[in-house]
Design a binder for these strands. Structure first.
Lengths: 189, 189
DNA sequence: CGATGCCACGTAACAATGTTACACCACCGA
DNA sequence: TCGGTGGTGTAACATTGTTACGTGGCATCG
């Protein structure tokens, strides 16, 4: 039952948005009564938390599926960036629950943030190999945080619609590719 | 009356968060009935839109108050970045309404996004001077978007609590300063 | 085998919220 | 003076999160 509720909740979130994610709609889609959400998740807050953690697990799984070169080289990181953006664009509402306060008054618990941090650790590990291969002395965790923040910034602005009005998908793709280059090499000023 | 309602709404948003921003609470704080929100803003949606536009106006004003050097040099941009972060940390809920989908089912209208774009134009102008001073041939709009996205990414992750658990304010400040350097010079891999 | 307790579940209710219908009243032009 | 227009308040409605209470099935134990 717990799995069915969570699955229904994620499905509604993806298809109809955060505003349609109500206890009644979820329980109806899961085939139970509203009380089911309370017995299994303690309330809507707990359900959102489960969605949050589930999102980072799916997100981390998508990152792990990024094909790796024989030896980790700098260019490989652009594949992570594209995989990051692809997942976010494919799951925009889910992404916004994880990063954008899409649900008012929801604050992830310490455990939930720890689950998120585990996903981040994957990136740190990849960066660690890349920095050592590139002979850099930078702290991998700081570099990883920088990559995460920069890519998240691009994705977040894109999801918020903060683009030139009417930018096509191809234009957005090109802008993101240029962004990856600037993340790697600096902005030139 | 319209100004009183908007002022009350922003005040509640800042002090109690997006979850406490209800039509009744706003109208009570503004000293009118719930109908007032409908006569002046057409509903909660219109009120949020007004808050959105108001936020970008305040945000743009804060950016314009950044002291400028005699000639715009590259280093000046770090002052913009710090002003950006300072405003966001001082107005976290307002910032999240503008960028983070803090209110479910709210999608900024074309006009609202245009108002946001005007604030962005200020940054483009500043970048234009800096790129020409630095002899760069990059498109200022692309560089400005890159700066915006990168700084927004740092700020957004910080507001979302995506940090090492228990990072102090000083540690967060230092991380952001390092981030600005990496934005300018690249991440090293 | 029968009794007992526990746990999942549903029904129904409650408070809060966004929204709307309707009446009221001040003001203004004819 | 009269009619109308527009801002205002009251009250109601549908929806949402939440909880109290009753029910039934299932395991455990005498």
């Amino acid at each position: 039952m717990r799995g069915a509720i969570l699955e229904a909740a994620v499905d509604i979130l993806q298809r109809e948005g955060a505003g349609a994610l109500t206890v009644r709609s979820v329980s109806a889609a899961a085939g139970c009564s509203t009380t089911g959400v309370y017995t299994w998740f303690g309330g809507k807050h707990g359900l959102i938390e489960a969605i949050f953690v589930d999102g980072f697990q799916r997100f981390g799984a998508a990152q792990r599926e990024v094909p790796r070169g024989r030896t980790r080289r700098a260019g490989d990181l652009s594949r992570y960036a594209h995989a990051y953006r692809d997942w976010a664009l494919a799951n925009p509402t889910h992404y916004m629950v994880m990063f954008g306060k899409a649900v008012p008054d929801y604050q992830p618990s310490e455990q939930a943030l720890t689950a998120a941090a585990e996903t981040f650790e994957q990136l740190v590990e990849a960066v660690r190999e890349a920095t050592s291969a590139a002979g850099s002395t930078d702290d991998p965790a700081e570099v990883a945080h920088h990559l995460w923040a920069s890519v998240h910034g691009y994705v977040s602005l894109e999801l918020a619609g903060m683009h030139d009005a009417g930018a096509s998908a191809a234009q957005r793709d090109r802008r993101f590719r240029g962004g990856i280059e600037r993340i790697r090499l600096g902005c030139g000023i």
